[in-house]
Simulated assay, not measured.
Amino acid sequence: MANTKKTKTRIAAVGDIHVRETDRGKWEEYFAQVSQVADVLLLCGDLTDTGRTSEAEVLAHELKSCSIPVVAVLGNHDYERDHHKGIRKTLVKENVHLLDGDCIVIGDVGFAGVKGFGGGFDKGMLGMFGETMIKSFVQEAVDEALKLDGALSRLESEHTDLKKIAVLHYAPIRATVEGEPEQIFPFLGSSRLAEPINRRGVVAAFHGHAHIGTLEGETSKGVKVFNVSKPILMKEGFDPAVYILEV
Rank of each mutant, 00 (worst) to 15 (best):
D78W: 00
D100P: 05
P196D: 11
F206E: 15
K135S: 14
N227D: 14
E144S: 11
L91S: 07
Q183I: 06
A151K: 05
G217I: 10
V58E: 06
F129P: 09
I244A: 13
E182L: 03
F226V: 15
H211T: 09
G222D: 15
A194G: 08
V225F: 01
K85H: 13
P181Q: 05
A166H: 03
L245G: 01
I173E: 14
Q139T: 08
L215H: 08
T48E: 12
G113Y: 01
E218T: 01
S35G: 13
K164M: 09
A151Y: 04
P172C: 03
V19D: 08
G213P: 03
G86C: 07
V109Q: 06
G201R: 08
K135L: 07
P196Q: 06
A171M: 03
G124V: 03
S153Q: 09
I134F: 05
K85I: 10
A204N: 02
V34A: 14
L41T: 02
V114W: 03
L42T: 09
G222W: 10
G124K: 09
H97F: 04
N198W: 00
R52W: 12
E28T: 08
K147H: 00
H207G: 09
H77Q: 11
R192Y: 05
M133E: 15
C66T: 01
L188S: 13
K64N: 08
G130N: 11
I134H: 06
I173S: 14
K6N: 06
G150V: 00
I165K: 00
V73P: 04
G25E: 07
G222P: 15
D161M: 00
K89S: 12
W27Y: 15
